[in-house]
Simulated scan of single mutants.
Amino acid sequence: MNIRSTPRVLAAASSALLALGAVTACSSDEVAGADPQRVDVVAAFYPLEFVSERVGGDAVTVVNLAKPGAEPHDLELNPGQVGQVSEAELVVYLKGFQPAVDEAVEQNGGERVFDVTTVQPLLDAAAGGHDHDHGHEGEDGHEEEKAEPAGKTDGAKDPHVWLDPTRLATIADKLAERLGTADPDRAADYTARAKALRTELEKLDAEFTQGLKTCQRREIVVSHTAFGYLTERYQLEQIGISGLSPENEPSPQRLAEVTEEAREHKATTIFFETLVSPKVAETIAREVGAKTAVLDPIEGLSADNTGGDYFSVMRSNLETLRTALGCS
């Protein structure tokens, strides 16, 4: 009897283990619908996770599709993540930034999506160039004729909208409206949290405005042109080694142009990013006698990142810029 019952015992034990494994997977994967008391939000990458957490508070569960420390442009979704997109009550994403997310949203998002590109028009992208006066230097103080920007890309838009704190505040306001639609009973709470976040972001904006007001230089040489919103907001100028995509290798001609411009503007620092190889930046720095430093576009953080959050990294960026530009 014991021998005959053994297969049944083994089958029961196997079923129990499979069930336990499924429970464990659910708890670690944070699948949508895990907490019926909260609104399930899927955020496409860190800045959107940050703003969703801050506006949603304890009324939401937020899942970030991008892994901490990974380049979000290159995100590929596994079947579980596609399932999260299809099951979420709200998907917060930036159309055109991550093709895999765009595809999942198109196939499974329906009306449950919040595309932050609809909040305000995006800036035109720059592909490694900048508006720069290449005419003859005048000594009479008159404004010189400017050449066409070297790196304008027809039709392409810059997605890095979160690097302007005032734009991120407006995104938070609109996100509060969307969460209020999904969860009317707590609409006032979402609005209040968005207002509090706006206050913090406006304070950060004031710090940047004051901190970058008086500087010896206003041009920043960056590994790729991710900083258009920051430079426009604070009257700086970015000189991109490569264009909008960090994967694009700059041509020898572009490297020569950037080296020349870095010398012309007496750049003391060539900036690279945490998720991009510093080799090209280091090469140009050696050529012009400059050093290198990290200017973080804040794409690959996570809510539990020990390296800081949006505010701390932005303030670190500010101090790095002040040092590089000789700001008083």
Rank of each mutant, 00 (worst) to 15 (best):
R4A: 15
T6L: 15
R8G: 13
V9M: 06
A11S: 14
A12D: 01
L17K: 02
L20G: 15
G21F: 09
A22P: 03
A22H: 05
V23C: 07
A25F: 15
C26I: 10
S28M: 10
S28T: 10
D29H: 08
A32E: 08
P36Q: 10
V39M: 10
V39H: 08
F45I: 03
P47H: 09
P47V: 11
L48Q: 09
E49P: 00
F50G: 00
V51C: 05
V51H: 03
S52M: 04
R54H: 11
G56A: 11
V60K: 05
V60A: 12
V63M: 08
N64D: 15
A66P: 02
K67T: 14
G69F: 14
E71A: 06
L75W: 06
L75C: 06
N78Y: 04
Q81G: 03
V85W: 06
S86W: 00
E87G: 04
L90Y: 04
V92W: 02
Y93T: 06
A100L: 05
V101Q: 08
V105Q: 07
Q107V: 15
N108C: 07
T118F: 05
T118P: 03
L122Y: 04
L122Q: 08
D124G: 13
D124C: 00
A125L: 03
A125Q: 02
A125W: 03
G135I: 08
E137M: 13
G138E: 09
G138Q: 12
G138F: 13
E139M: 11
K146V: 14
E148A: 14
T153A: 15
D154Q: 14
A156C: 03
K157C: 00
D158Y: 09
D158M: 09
D158F: 07
W162Q: 04
W162A: 02
L168D: 08
T170N: 11
I171L: 13
I171G: 12
A172E: 09
D173W: 04
K174G: 02
L179H: 06
L179F: 07
L179T: 08
G180W: 03
T181L: 09
D183H: 10
R186G: 02
R186A: 12
T191H: 15
R193I: 05
K195R: 12
R198T: 14
T199G: 06
A206F: 02
G211R: 11
H224T: 12
T225F: 04
L230E: 08
R233P: 01
Q235W: 02
L236M: 07
E237W: 01
Q238T: 05
I239H: 01
L244K: 00
P250D: 02
S251N: 01
P252R: 04
R254Q: 15
E257T: 09
E257H: 02
V258N: 04
E261Q: 13
H265P: 01
A267G: 07
V276L: 04
S277K: 14
P278M: 04
A281P: 06
T283A: 12
I284T: 06
G289P: 01
G289F: 07
K291M: 01
T292S: 03
L295G: 10
I298R: 03
E299C: 06
E299I: 11
G307L: 10
D309W: 02
D309V: 00
Y310G: 04
F311M: 15
F311I: 07
M314W: 05
T320R: 10
L321R: 12
L321H: 12
R322K: 15
A324P: 07
S328D: 12
